[in-house]
Design a protein around this nucleic acid. Structure first.
Lengths: 228, 228, 228, 228
DNA sequence: CATGAATGAGGGTTCATTCAT
DNA sequence: GATGAATGAACCCTCATTCAT
């Protein structure tokens, strides 16, 4: 009776607007389609109206299924949100990890990471917003299980980024300052520009956004220094 | 019947943990005391459990008044939250404005601004979190009035900061890059470090935090360059 | 916020059809009246359609209040039922206790006990049925908290009756057989005749019923023997 | 479309833990096996968690079949329960009838009846509890069809027992009191001791239980009298 | 014969809000 | 000025039941 917690990758693939050809495999079909529709509807709804502002009925309506159907695939509202959140969290986690392992100079890895993040922003802005929107709850005094989980994941991400930054420090591409600060700077920029882009997507092309973030990250707001 | 929307400054004064001597002036007393108690209770509750997680009953209980009393002072839950939000928004707005007008070099103004923000973080962390926590809703497709208002205010803050940054650019303390980017960088850092400090306040003294933020803002993560 | 668990006696008094003059004391009124109405409606409903067959809406409708009002007085459906159940359980418990302490011969005490039980049956048949109807759940493998509680109380009643029977044995009014058996016999008869009376109340006057129960209890179905 | 209401005896045979050899007769097999599995699972489930506490999904899971399959054999949940109930009711009915026809002295017939009841208690305690648990609903003001049926059957049992008791009276093994009272006494003892045995089965061997019931039935709780 | 998939019809519960006192 | 009492409107979730395959 516990709804089968399908591998997160599946959902991820189905959600991605880019590679969503939905191969017509001879799978159980029905169930998969329904699950994907629900997950998709949920991502949109949660992103637009937040966790509390979204009702199960909303998701049901938007997905084309009945509220009861949703409970066949997820134990409850929180589990559904949690699933979505994990999809994004794992995607990011993987990205961060990968970026620390690429056998190329640090600055290339940074670029690569940023461009990958840009792709996510483009392919699943809904999910990304739903994800980031969860962060504020991190500071709660009486966190729900969901909030506790978010907090843990948030710190895990920071750790990963810190590791990356340490490599940058080692390669002398970054300064000597505490790697953690750099990680925070990175995250701060990411969130800020993600919002900027989402609230006004037409403002410019994504590539340009990435360049600006990279530049701000490396040199801050101060004047170009040195010989120049 | 719409409860008189008392000047925000009053609340602000009452909330600040520092200078809250509550002089026994010749005033209607009762009403003021009640209002202050309610506002204070609301700030704590909203910060700890969020807008949706906080019930009017919660606030009533914590304030020592009845739910009905709250409606004597605020038209509804949203108005109460909105008021709190505005208190913080105006406080920040004033700070930003002031910082563009100080007749001292840019870097001093920046320092001053940061230290002022630090004071706020220390005196009303609850409020500040409640304030920042509101930001994610900014991107909603179907925003409530509160969200629309938040969005406007958020942009106003950015404008103000952009003006400040333009001064910095003019004084050659900052680079030539678009002032808006610098404003975003500043905000990103602010939020990130505010969270950091709130979720682990003991981590270090605030002064130190400010230094790091300033440093990251001015120089980014890149290495200190050349001749210096 | 936890609804005030008013002393059970109060409810008991209000429910009793006999002495229910509802003195117009200058009490908080409202709340008391409402609570009594809800409790009364609940007793009727539960007795007629059982715990599961009764909805909060039923009780609300019959009590003349809204469903939400019920939750002001009882934390939830189970708590409401549990309260009713306790009212009866304590009433019985007190009766049983008292009957073991009366300074009169055993057979008089027994008579007195039966007549008291008869009074209850007449004044609150609803409650009594709701109470007895709970017993079957006693044997559940996976009991709810309510069921566990019922079971404990049931055994407590048996213990009390056993104590009474031991006195009867000691006074030679009863045989030597295990007191526990006598307690079970007594309970069995009680339940059986309570049902009989409730399902066909007009069948005879209560006094007559009591006599028969007493007779069956003392002599069973066998023939009157010997010399007598 | 109404599923063929197979003769109750079949189920009875399949349920009885004792003689369940399930001969591989030339029969539709499949269907029979499925039906038996469902009925068996239902008996267990209903007995453990009651009618309302048991879901069709529960029964399906425990039977190894799907919920839909259940509807192939029974029109609905109530019909399934009703069937189980009838199995027990008819078994008892037959027992009672038979006991009035045995060409042996009354006391032997009584003994025989009790031992037969003991066998049932041992072989299908689940069913017996599910059966007895139904009784309280007998008194409902707005009975469901199931409850009406239970009530009728209950009275039929009493009638049967009353007939038996009349024989006892005639044979002078019982007193002269109304036969109906004796029937009620018998039922009361039966239920009470059935519960006792089920809630604490290890307490003693069944034979002993039967003796006690018989003794209580014949002589009540009073002292052994007269010259005897 | 069997089931996977889906749903309609509630049921319990919460909560912002009102209003007579 | 303050509140006790009450409620309408949802919301989350469950479950018996159906039906195409």
């Amino acid at each position: 009776m516990p709804p089968p917690s399908e591998p997160v990758e599946e959902t991820e693939r189905l959600l991605t607007r880019a590679g969503g050809e939905l191969k017509t495999e001879r799978r159980k079909r029905g169930a998969d389609v329904a699950r994907a529709a629900i997950v998709h509807a949920a991502a949109t709804a949660f992103a637009q109206r937040g966790y509390y502002g979204t009702t199960i009925d909303d998701i049901a309506r938007e997905s084309g299924y009945s509220p009861a159907a949703i409970y066949k695939y997820f134990t409850n509202k929180e589990a559904l949100f949690s699933h979505l959140w994990n999809v994004m969290a794992e995607q990011l986690q993987k990205l961060f990890e990968e970026s620390t392992r690429m056998p190329v100079p640090f600055s290339q890895r940074l670029r690569w990471l940023l461009s990958k993040l840009g792709e996510i922003l483009q392919s699943s802005p809904d999910l990304l917003i739903a994800f980031i929107g969860q962060r504020p709850y991190v500071a709660r005094s009486h966190p729900t299980e969901l909030e506790r989980q978010s907090f843990r994941q948030y710190k895990r991400h920071l750790m990963q980024l810190k590791a990356l930054m340490e490599q940058g420090i080692h390669e002398r591409v970054l300064g000597s300052g505490p790697a953690e600060d750099y990680a925070n700077l990175f995250v701060g920029l990411l969130y800020e520009f993600a919002y900027k882009w989402v609230t006004a997507p037409a403002s410019a092309d994504l590539q340009h956004h990435e360049d600006r973030v990279l530049n701000l990250f490396l040199h801050g707001a101060g004047p170009l220094r040195g010989g120049k």
